[in-house]
Structures are given as C-alpha cells and as structure tokens.
Design a protein around this nucleic acid. Structure first.
Lengths: 211, 211, 211, 211
DNA sequence: TATGAATGAGTTTTCATTCAT
DNA sequence: TATGAATGAAAACTCATTCAT
C-alpha cells in the first residue's frame, strides 16, 4: 500500500467496519481513477452516473463505496495533493535551494492544472480527510521557501504562505480578454512569478501574509 | 446615462422597439445589479429565480427583460469590462508608463475580483455583444505594455498578450492549501508579478505568446 | 353593419354598457382579423401576444376588448360559420337540389379548411355566442339535404345530420401514413363522399343518425 | 412477447445495453398504456407529469424510460400502427377483395379513432422509428386497393394513395355544427365513403393522387 | 383609453441519491 | 454484494392574464 492510496483508504474506512474486501478496494480504486479522468475531461460537473459508467460499476456500487459524489471528488483531490507532497519531498532533497523551489513550483502547477476543475475546491471547505495531507504540503512549502530565503535566493519580504497563492494563480484559464492561451502559457506565467520572487525585489509587500 | 449603463441599454434594446419605459429600465438595472451581487456571493451558478428574487421582480419579468440567464450574466460581464476599459483609458493618460501600467493592473485585478464568479467566463465563448469591449480592452493593454517596454521599464521578452493572463491569475481564490487569504492577498500577488515584469528579468520566456 | 360582423358585435356587447366607440370597434375588428390570419398560419396555439402584435394593438387592449384568448378564437369561429351560412343560403337559392348541395359542401369544406386549427373546436364546447349561428347552419343543411332526397338525388337512408360529420371529415390533414396530400386532396375526398351520398347506394346505414 | 410489444421494446432498446429488467419493462408498458389512454382522453397535449401519474411512476422514471414526452407519443403511435398493419395482413388473406378492403378500412378507422389525439401526427414528421411500419402499412394498403380494382369492385380513377386520406377522414370528432355524434357515427361515415369508392362512380377525380 | 410591464403557475427535463432485485 | 430502477426536488423557460402608467 503506497502513499498514493491514502485517498482510497480514507473512503474505505469511512464505510466498512471490518477489513475491506479485495473487490471493494478494487471498486474504490476504479472509481477514484475514473473520477479523476472524468474531471480532467469534462470538468467538476461530471455526473455521478458518468463516473460510475467510466469506472464500470453500477450507480448503486458508486454510492455504497463513496457515500456521495462530493466525497469522491475530495478523494481525487487527496490523491492529487498526495502527488504534490511526494514531489515536494523530492524537491527538498535537491541540494540547490532555488532549483528545489523551482522544481516544486513547476510540478505543483502542473499537477493542479491536470485536476483543473477541482482546483477551485482545493483548499476550500474540505472535509477533515484532507487536513493531514494539506498540513504536510504546507510544511513542505514552508521548508522549501525558508531554505531558499536563507540561501538569499528568494526575497525576504515574501512569506512562505504567499507562495501557494502565487502558484495557484499561475495555471490560468484557457482564455481571457478574448485571447486564447497556448499550451505553455502557464510556464510563461510561472517564469514571471519566479522572477518576481527572486531576491532582487525592492519594495516590501503590502498587508499581512495569509494564515 | 453614463457609460456604465451600456449593458443595461444593450438588454433593453434587444427587446423593445420604442423608447424603454421607466419601470422597464429600472427593473433591468435592478436585475443587472442583483446578478452582479449574486454572482459575487454565490458564483456563476446562481439560479434565475434567485437573481429575480434579489432584484425584487417576478421570474416572468426576469425573462421578459433578459431573454436568458446567460444573457444577463453576459451583460454583467459587459459592465465589468466597461469599467476596466474606462480605467485603462485613464491609465494611458498617466505620463509615467510604469505607473500607468501599475494603476491599470491594480484596477483591473480589483474589478475582476469583484465579479469573481464570471471571471472564468471572461473572454470565453461570449456572444458578439462583448466583442467590441474586449477588443477595446486588448488595445488598451497593448498600448500600456508596449509603451512601458519602449520606456525600458518592462522586460522585452514579455508579450503584451501575456499580461492579461498574468492579471487574470493574480486574484486567486479565498483559500488554497488550507490557508485563508487576507484581504490584501491579491495585492501581494500583484506586487510579485509586477516585479517579475520589470526589465531586470534575465532568462527569456518559454513558448509563444498567446494570440 | 353586415352579417359577418356578428362576431365582432358579440364581443363588443360582452364588455361595454353603452354604444361602442368607433375605435373600440376598429380594434375588435383588427383583432378578429389578425386572429384568423394567425390561426391559419401558425395554428390554434397562437399566443395572445402574437395576435395582439399582428393586430397592431397592445396586449392590454387585447384583453380589454376580448376578455380571453379563447373568446377571441370563438369569435373567429363565429365569423367562419357566418360565411358558411351565407353560402348555404345561396346554395338553397339554386333551383337544382343536387348542385345546391354540392356547392354548399365544397364551400363549407373550403371555409372550414381555411380556419384549420379551430376546426377541432367547431361544434365543441362553444359558448352560447355561437348557438344562433350553429342553429341557422343546421337548418340550412337540413333543408339542402332533405330537398335533395325529395328530388331523389341523395339516398334516403342518410340523415341530414350525417352530412355535417361527413363534410367535417373531408378536409384531412396534410399528411397521413407517410403520404403528403396535394392541394386538391380534399376535392378528391369530397368527390368520393358525394358519390357515396348519391341515390345509388344500396345497403342501409348502421346505427342512428346523430342528434 | 407478441408483435404489439414492438413499441415497448423499441423504447427499452434505446436505453439499456443488456436484457431489460422485469420492472423496467413493466414500467415502460405502463407508460405506453397510460400515454395511450391519456391521449385518448385529454389529447396529445397531455403533460409528462400527467402520464407519469396515470402510470403510477415518478417523473424521473418517465424520463429514464422514455427519453422524452415526444418519444413516448411516437411509441404509442408505433403501437397503433402495428395493430393496423396486423389487421391489414389478415385482410389481405381474405379471398374476397372487397370484403378484405372493407375489413381493413373498418379496423383501421377504429384503431385510429382510439388514439384520436395523435391522429394528426400520424404520418407527420415522425422519427425514423416509424418509417418501417408506415412503409409496411402503405404497401398493404396499395395491395388491398389494387387487388380490389383488378377485381372491378373499386372504381379505377381512385389511386390507392387516396384511401389513407379518406380513411383518416372517416373518424371525425365528437361534435360538429352543434351536433353530437353517436357511437356509430364513424361507421355511418365509412359506409358512405366505401359506397363512394365502388366501381359505380362516374366522374373522374380532380387533381393528382398524393405521393 | 391604450399600452406594455409584471406576474407566477405550469412545462419539460436533469441528476444526486435511495431502495428493491 | 452489486446492480440499476425509481424517485422527486430543482432548473430554465413560456404564456395567459392582471395592473400600473
């Protein structure tokens, strides 16, 4: 049972009392996978029936395993965040503080963009199931940013809490102001943001860092 | 009748032949106002009934005045964009190219944030009613950015088309990674982005600018 | 005020106390005319607004003059029936009993077909406003048929009350069984029916004539 | 599963992949039955809710089983036409050409009258689901009429395509010209029409037969 | 008086969720 | 247990009719 199964386990625990049967686990896995693909393809508004169909299970099984459509989406989110945390761990292992931050930023943005529809929900009013992974992710972000600041490659007026918001911002929608984004638009955005984060920055930031 | 009534007029024109009656105009205004507030509060998915209720009119009046829920949202968008364009004009009148861009950026982000729910739709598949105002806005953005580049205060590897995407990104959601944004979060984001846009930037941007 | 204004007068009487003003009468006439054209064009399901628009009056005037959409359709019906009765009178003046019946039949079918949508309602649950004209029409039919029977050109086992039903049927819909009717289909139908009515007929009719 | 279940099967096939469950089939049958009765009673304009109520199912089941109100009406039509075609087959098996035609005519009119509201739609712009059965019905009609003409018992100036229109005409409404039809009115009408179709007929028909 | 603005019940349809098979 | 049938509360939108201007 690797780290990324956390979301699946969460769901299984929520229902059963005894140890989950093998087929139950398989169905939950299928549902999470199908939901992720479906969200990526048609957006967060996918219907429960559509997800069940893609997972190859009946709608009855869907609700027996998942308790609600929203709970499943939360589980998908948990998976995505788990991947982001893994990535954060690897980034922290990079001896170069700036490169580590850069790597994490790029990966985080990409992962987030892939689960495009749910991104609005990320960090939103999530159930307690996501608290642990979110906490982990915050801790990783804090360490990556502070290490980079100590190394003098990130300006010191930035708080580590600013970074999640900045990264959340990078993956914009397909279109704005009547313009259509190319495939690399978010990479261009990220470059600007990272350049803005470098030590060079002069004026101090307004307001307080988020809590 | 000031410029910002454009959207209201648009809707009135779509239905009646003669000059619109006072009460009709009042109701359209109420509807646009209510829709804007409702979208800001509960998101683009507000129901027609809810908007009608907030505007204090019957559902029949809603559809008589507005033809469809989507048309009303488009009108709200038109209003928001109109305000942004006004702001852009004033920014271009500022003799300092950097300050002009900065002013526009801050205002644009604020205006956009106020109509938060529709922001995803901005620039999306809008009806022709918005084409004119979007074109105007693009032209303003182009002139503001190119003027700043000619003055050497914005890095030259940025395309003016990047700027709308960067600004669209700045006003992030309330929460991310379990953190809650303070009221000035978008201002902090904007500062970083603007610093990233300054001439100092070294590496050239990847990919192609959006069309 | 000729005979065909009966329907208009009916409506005027239903509302006003004193003698109807000239413009009131003009508006009712317009409404009946517009309703007739509208029904012929788009069917009985025309909306009140559409009729008002075609008549060039407001919807308020519509209801002030007409009391209800249904009442207006009934008035149209009254007009149509009035024309049919006029025709019946002329047919009775024809010295040839068979030719008289034939003329009436053809005209009645044509008139009925023109007000195609309301034909289902003809004779249906009409208000008392139509009773007089319907009675007149029945009397004319009776005399035409009985005169022809006395002259030996219509079989005697037919009751005059059968004829309205036979004629009502002749103007069929545009399509049936996947076939499309030509413009003269009802004339072909009528010819068959008239031939069936001729004295030649052998077997007596089943059941009782309608009351 | 007899022939008359064709319409039910059609609807079931449209939704499910595997073999339909017993309760699903029961509900479709109920819906088709209820729709048929409802149409006969209140006309084609019956609401989906009303049909569902009569069938004793929820509105959700209505749409799960039937896809749309119109599709259900088409299915009802299909059933009716199926019954007519069966009857036509039996009529063709009758060695007496005239009696065969007579039998078919009577049955067709009766069947049609039962689904009185949809009769306007018969042959109208139907979906492809009805094309086959309509074609079958046309072919039967053609053979019945031509056989009778060859036997010299139907006048030769009639085209077989006239017959569907004539039969469509026989089943008139309940009331016309203020008269109320007795139960056998359509039988009386049919007798006249059939007598008109007999070989005796003199004058040739006007216009062209329908295509 | 004529106008047309406002009304809201009613229509078709969708979809999250429950429950019988 | 897995299935998919059934449910019904909305949602968008229409239209006959009333009422303020």
């Amino acid at each position: 049972m690797n780290k990324r199964d956390g979301a699946v386990d969460e769901l299984l625990r929520a229902v059963a009392g005894g140890p989950p049967r093998a087929d139950a686990r398989r169905n939950v896995e299928r549902l999470v996978l199908a939901a992720r693909a479906a969200v990526a393809e048609v957006g967060v508004e996918v219907t429960a029936h559509e997800i069940a169909r893609r997972a190859g299970v009946g709608i009855g099984t869907f609700y027996r395993r998942v308790s609600s459509r929203e709970a499943l989406l939360e589980a998908v989110l948990g998976e995505v965040l788990g991947e982001a945390a893994e990535l954060g761990g690897r980034a922290l292992a990079d001896p170069d503080p700036w490169r580590g931050l850069e790597t994490f930023a790029a990966g985080y943005v990409r992962i987030r963009a892939e689960s495009c529809g749910i991104r609005d929900a990320i960090g939103g009013a999530c159930g307690p199931g996501l608290d642990r992974i979110l906490g982990e992710l915050r801790e990783l972000t804090r360490r990556l940013v502070e290490r980079a600041q100590e190394a003098g490659v990130v300006r010191s007026d930035v708080a580590w809490q600013d970074v999640p918001f900045l990264l959340a911002a990078v993956a914009t929608g397909e279109r704005t102001m009547g313009l259509r984004a190319g495939a690399e638009q978010w990479e261009r955005n990220l470059r600007i943001v990272l350049d803005g984060l470098r030590a060079a920055g002069a004026a101090s930031l307004p307001g307080e860092p988020p809590a």
